[in-house]
């Protein structure tokens, strides 16, 4: 079948909300776009373990410690599900990890910000996971079957992540003045980076239109960002915390919040590698990978020996 005809059939399937499966014909661009997006998503889960992992050893109660450890562990699991989904497109995990370690693959810039206080763990759960979940819920309906199935699993597991973060902040906001200040400080530092998580504005987003047509994405960056803001404001009010945006105001006409302007210079700098923790995050992943090389080799060598013995 000629390629243009296959492409028409492919688009018909997508338009009819049929899932695309690994062995189906798909345009090269679709495949590439997916590998890029899914592997970035997987890298984000893995690098995302670092800022929160930073507080596992310092969590202030045994209950909080177990919750945080379970959550960071979930992120490892989610990274794994996503690498799995990307692997169905013919790119091995080793290749994707290699791109991450070489610094040629992207991951969500939010994880290049430091977690400085315990309240940051609350803010990361509430805002960062909250923003991520918006994206992930949308992706449960993405056109590529394995990606959609991985996202359904992830969304089910993520539901406690945002709540545990908010729960930390509820406790802090009811606590001493120092604890309350800690919570406000975390919100001040995490608010804008969280909004940046939705990506560039629609008018500047290079991949968005095609992704929407292919139903890889189902809603635009700006749409999701607005929904996130609308939902989050009242949650901040309940905590008695001030969102650090003087322009934030309910608009009766649009039934949405108006809000200020994202500092896109900062956004672009962090993407370019000039965020507070870019170098540390990459170095930590490189070290784990390099230190683990002999472990992975040993397991393979042993499996080979055992295979030979069983065959003999």
């Amino acid at each position: 079948m000629p390629a243009d005809q296959q492409e028409t059939l492919f688009q018909q399937k997508v338009d009819a909300e049929q899932k695309i499966e690994p062995r189906d014909w798909m345009p090269e661009g679709y495949r590439k776009n997916l590998v890029r997006q899914i592997s970035q998503h997987a890298h984000s889960e893995i690098v995302g373990m670092l800022p929160e992992g930073n507080w596992i050893t310092r969590a202030p109660s045994l209950r909080r410690k177990t919750i945080l450890l379970a959550k960071v562990q979930d992120e490892a699991g989610h990274g794994l599900y996503l690498y799995s989904a990307a692997e169905t497109l013919g790119t091995g995990r080793d290749e994707m990890v290699d791109q991450l370690l070489r610094g040629t693959a992207k991951y969500s810039s939010i994880f290049n910000y430091p977690t400085l206080t315990w309240a940051d763990i609350g803010a990361v759960g509430w805002l960062v996971d909250g923003a991520a979940i918006m994206n992930q819920v949308m992706l449960c309906r993405t056109s590529y079957g394995p990606y959609a199935r991985a996202m359904v699993r992830i969304c089910k597991e993520e539901s406690f992540h945002q709540r545990q973060g908010y729960d930390i902040l509820v406790t802090l906001s009811k606590g001493t003045p120092e604890q309350k200040a800690m919570a406000q400080d975390a919100l001040d530092r995490w608010w804008w980076p969280s909004l940046m998580m939705f990506g560039p504005s629609d008018k500047d987003s290079p991949h968005s239109a095609q992704s929407l047509k292919w139903k890889i994405k189902r809603q635009s960056n700006d749409e999701l960002r607005q929904i996130f803001i609308d939902r989050t404001v009242s949650q901040a009010e309940y905590l008695g915390l001030q969102i650090p945006d003087p322009k934030l105001k309910w608009n009766e006409a649009t039934q949405h919040y108006d809000w200020g302007e994202i500092d896109w210079t900062e956004f672009n700098e962090v993407i370019r590698g000039n965020g507070p923790c870019n170098a540390e995050r990459l170095a930590a992943r490189q070290k784990a990978h390099a230190d683990g090389a002999w472990v992975r080799e040993a397991a393979l060598a042993y499996a080979a020996k055992k295979g030979e013995r069983n065959a003999a």
Binding site: G53, I56, V72, Q73, A76, G77, A284, A288, G292, R296
Partner: peptide, 16 residues
């Protein structure tokens, strides 16, 4: 302390 720093992703999860 291995969480996020394990030799392979699957082992990170096991150790946690």
């Amino acid at each position: 302390e291995w969480c996020g720093h394990g030799p392979v992703l699957e082992e990170d999860i096991a150790q946690a």
